[in-house]
């Protein structure tokens, strides 16, 4: 961050002076090594000192050019001409040497192809992201439509969510005739990428089957989850949610997040 002149007006002279007094010596190359690092750190953030340094560096260029001209001996010119390598040394790096064997047209064509490929790759990545977002939105829309449908159905029950996480609240709509339940969960925490939430349908003997995997909504405070039971919902006495490794588990292995008694 570089301070503006306005901000620097608030910097007291005492704070600023130790740096400013070293600028002339720094510009002329005479500042001692132990003071250089401190001043260079300050210069990175101080517009006033940068401007002052630029002025003093102009002075050093004046000094550079102020030496009276002196014509060297004619012999130096001859020596110099004799010492010139016959071919201009290739001082550029290997990349430059490699590139120099191609014509400008070839290099331009290669550059255009590279730009097109990069552009295509970028577009594909954007398309993939859009498809992912579209799938998430479609899934959410489906859940919310089911929830609305359940709300309108006379047999639908509303059940309380017993949360094991602080601030997590919610309720569940259940239509046992349709073997469908929709969870409404507020303030469900986001999980790291390696974890997922998994719903479980629990029967009277304690046996469980998976009710599906889901993640917390990232752009709104509540999450809706539709649980479709493959067998009659009346077989179950409870629905639970645990945290499991990404991809889900055969049986609960992680901490319990909530339960709903059916």
């Amino acid at each position: 961050m570089t301070y503006t002149y306005l901000e620097l007006e608030h910097m007291s002279q005492d704070e600023h002076a130790p740096f400013r007094e070293n600028i002339p010596a720094y510009a002329i190359g005479a500042l001692d090594v132990e003071d250089i690092t401190t001043l260079e750190s300050h210069l990175k953030t101080c517009a006033i000192c940068q401007a002052e340094l630029a002025e003093y560096r102009s002075v050093t260029i004046g000094l550079l050019q102020s030496a009276p001209p002196k014509v060297p001996s004619p012999e130096l010119r001859r020596r110099l001409a004799a010492r010139l390598p016959k071919h201009q040394p290739q001082t550029r790096n290997a990349v430059f040497s490699f590139l120099s064997q191609f014509s400008i047209r070839q290099l331009a064509t290669a550059a255009i192809i590279a730009i097109l490929l990069a552009s295509n790759l970028h577009s594909n990545l954007q398309l993939r992201d859009l498809k992912q977002q579209q799938a998430i939105l479609a899934e959410r829309l489906s859940s919310e439509q089911k929830a609305l449908a359940l709300l309108a159905y006379p047999e639908t029950q509303t059940l309380a969510v017993n949360a094991n996480i602080k601030e997590l609240t919610g309720s569940m709509l259940v239509d046992k005739a349709q073997n469908t339940a929709v969870l409404f969960l507020w303030h469900l925490p986001q999980l790291e990428n390696t974890k997922t939430y998994q719903a479980w349908l629990v029967d009277a003997t304690g046996d469980r089957i998976s009710g599906g995997l889901f993640n917390a909504s990232s752009d709104q405070d509540y999450t809706t989850v539709t649980i479709q039971s493959p067998v009659p919902m009346n077989n179950f006495i409870r629905i639970g949610v645990t945290i499991e490794p990404q991809g889900g588990s055969q049986k609960p292995t992680g901490p319990r997040v909530l339960t709903v008694n059916l």
Partner: peptide, 23 residues
């Protein structure tokens, strides 16, 4: 050359050394 040699001479103070530096 005269500008360069003028500077190298001012720094080195010796014409032979200055010519080498100019070269």
């Amino acid at each position: 050359a005269s500008r360069v040699h003028g500077l190298t001479l001012r720094i080195l103070g010796n014409d032979m050394l200055a010519e080498e530096a100019t070269q």
